[in-house]
């Protein structure tokens, strides 16, 4: 390879250009890169402030009803009558008063019920998956959890409606019980219990996935040290591994709670669509009474959107949902933040 040839091919930067200092400052489409960066930044900021747009619009539409109802929105019932009233007398000021206590209670009850299932069966499954599962079963079980988490909520609703609800009405509700309760509410199987079961099936997999990740990333050295001290595997799990994974488990539970609060369709299918406040005085029948959550109210009453008062009432439900989910997100951020700075898995 002769030197002449080399110079012939090296045409990209002329030999002489190097000795002129202008080479290093030669304009090289200087603005294009900057403009791209600015466009990227603008789109990023837009994705980030989208949440504020959502909050602003939802809350501003909710203000008429929230203003007119004041605290009675949270502390009094009668949603269904209020809604019918607003629908019939469209536009009158008096129709702006709503009481959403049963809806809020329904949301809290279904969500906390589902969380109880999560923290028992779900945590059990997470421990099984990450600590006890035989190797051949691990892959199938992981896929199972992921697929369960991917099943659309409407399918859980359908299964709840076709299996859980008939089961409850057939085996748990006797004829005399439903006759006794007929004055208060219809007992047809669509109930708080059905809602809790369906919701647990939905949020369980999400919780299991996060909790088992947290358990797996608990430092191995603790586990080995504990086993070496002669503690049994089970004691090690309870005393060493679960405490080490606590933050991740809590973050998973919070995330699951957020999903549960916001679930609309499946619950609208199985909880009875009545703004009824279950009465603990009825004993265990409490769980068999129909309820309705804030989210499913928006689905059930969606036709009311054309009337301003009804629309505002639904947005009031929406803003309660939104605010609680925002708070939960912030909470879970705190816990997953601790997880990261706690130096569990990565440096």
């Amino acid at each position: 390879m002769g030197k002449m040839e080399l110079e012939n091919v090296s045409v990209i930067i002329p030999e002489k250009a190097s000795s002129t200092t202008g080479f290093f400052t030669k304009p090289r489409k200087p603005f294009k890169e900057k403009i791209i960066e600015i466009i990227l930044l603008l789109l990023t900021v837009l994705s980030s402030i989208l949440i504020f747009f959502v909050m602003f619009f939802v809350i501003s539409k909710a203000i008429p009803v929230l203003k007119a109802s004041g605290f009675s929105f949270v502390f009094s019932g009668g949603w269904d009558e209020n809604f019918l009233n607003a629908w019939q007398t469209s536009g009158e000021q008096s129709a702006l008063k709503f009481g959403a206590l049963p809806l809020i209670a329904g949301t809290v009850l279904t969500t906390s019920g589902a969380l109880v299932f999560c923290l028992t069966f779900g945590l059990g499954c997470a421990i099984f998956l990450s600590e006890m599962c035989p190797a051949w079963l691990r892959k199938p079980l992981e896929s199972t959890v992921r697929l369960l988490a991917a099943i659309p909520s409407v399918i859980y609703g359908l299964i709840g409606l076709m299996i859980v609800v008939p089961f409850i009405s057939k085996h748990l509700i006797s004829n005399e019980l439903s006759l006794r309760m007929i004055k208060i509410c219809a007992l047809d199987g669509t109930s708080l219990l059905a809602g809790i079961i369906v919701l647990s099936m939905m949020i369980g997999p999400i919780f299991i996935a996060m909790a088992s990740d947290a358990i797996k990333s608990a430092p191995k050295i603790y586990k080995e040290a504990s086993l070496a001290l002669g503690l049994s595997h089970w004691r090690t799990i309870v005393k060493i591994i679960l405490p080490a994974a606590r933050n991740g488990i809590v973050a998973g539970a919070i995330l699951a709670a957020g999903r549960a609060i916001g679930e609309a369709i499946a619950l609208s299918m199985v909880t009875g669509s009545v703004a009824n406040l279950p009465n603990p005085a009825h004993g265990l029948v409490f769980f068999l009474e129909p309820v309705r959550t804030l989210a499913s109210t928006i689905v059930d009453n969606a036709e009311g959107m054309s009337v301003a008062a009804c629309e505002s009432a639904l947005f009031a439900c929406g803003s309660f949902l939104l605010l609680s989910c925002v708070l939960l997100s912030l909470f879970s951020r705190i816990f997953s933040g601790n997880l990261r700075t706690g130096g569990v898995s990565d440096k």
Partner: peptide, 19 residues
């Protein structure tokens, strides 16, 4: 480099790396 201070503010780093 060739009597040009490559840390001068107006320098285009991309051009330096080509050389």
């Amino acid at each position: 480099i060739d009597d040009y201070n490559i840390y001068k503010p107006e320098t285009d780093v991309v051009m330096i790396r080509r050389k």
